[in-house]
Write a protein that binds this DNA or RNA. Structure first.
Lengths: 136, 136
DNA sequence: ATAAATAGGATAGTTAATATCTTATTAAGT
DNA sequence: ACTTAATAAGATATTAACTATCCTATTTAT
């Protein structure tokens, strides 16, 4: 449960209950928007204020512990920063699926064609997930 | 100048001066956030209201004439919907570059590995553009 | 156990976006 | 061109999203 303590310590951030609760909750959800996150945390920490939530999320993003996920037509979401992956967004059920796929060839094409030095990439695909597709 | 009249007509939307001004401005900028857009349009149409701007942008998006561009760490931007392309975002100069690149192989990999039926994709790459890189 | 540093919570204040209502404009038919 | 029905614009108010400030509480190193 406290694996995030080390993560915080590594960035010289204090391990407050609130921060750990935020990280646990986001980790549990995978991706989550601010309201869902707030509602879930308030269950355990009724005193948690939205200011604290926003403040921490922004701090954690600036230390690259969290990252924002901006999907078209959706509220901004947040997730624990992990191995680079892409997002599959189903237009039927609204679910967001993570997928780990080799993007190097694409990045290399882009890099060599444009002279752009890529540090990271963000890929979203819209469509219909396997489950919803089979239901139709 | 009035190529957008046909576009609007095709969606049964009236060709108001405001709509044409919005489309022209967005077309001119390539990508633009709401405030830059508003400031630029107010020059020509001092009576333009922000409500009208937001309303029209949302209408145009729902008719697939415009699309939103959500980039990490940036305000939401808008652009004319055109041939699918990816965005290269320079962390030095802040510029957003369009690039037309073959993404089919990637999409096919994703599709076959996940069973996800992709309708469209959204790709952003962060890094340093050629110009800024050469300056260093 | 103490103290300095940092974070939390409450509140107020911005900024972003939307809803409502009245007036104005567009576009189709005459 | 004139009329009219449909739709859009503009003004305003309202809601929602986010941030800043200030004072108190908690954390952590000693």
């Amino acid at each position: 449960m406290d694996r995030f303590k080390d993560v915080l310590k590594a960035s010289n951030l204090k391990s407050t209950h609130q921060r750990l609760a935020i990280l646990d909750a986001i980790d549990h959800f995978g991706h989550v928007d601010i309201d869902t996150l707030y509602d879930s945390i308030v269950q355990k920490y009724p005193t948690m204020s939205k200011a604290t939530l926003y403040r921490n999320i922004n701090d954690l993003i600036s230390f690259h512990i969290l990252e924002e996920v901006k999907l078209p037509q959706q509220k901004q979401q947040y997730e624990i920063k992990k191995v680079p992956h892409i997002h599959l967004l189903c237009s039927e059920c609204g679910n967001v699926e993570d997928m780990f796929v080799e993007t190097k060839p694409l990045l290399e094409t882009v890099s060599s064609q444009s002279g752009f030095h890529i540090s990271n990439s963000f890929i979203v695909m819209n469509g219909i997930c396997k489950t919803c597709y089979l239901k139709q």
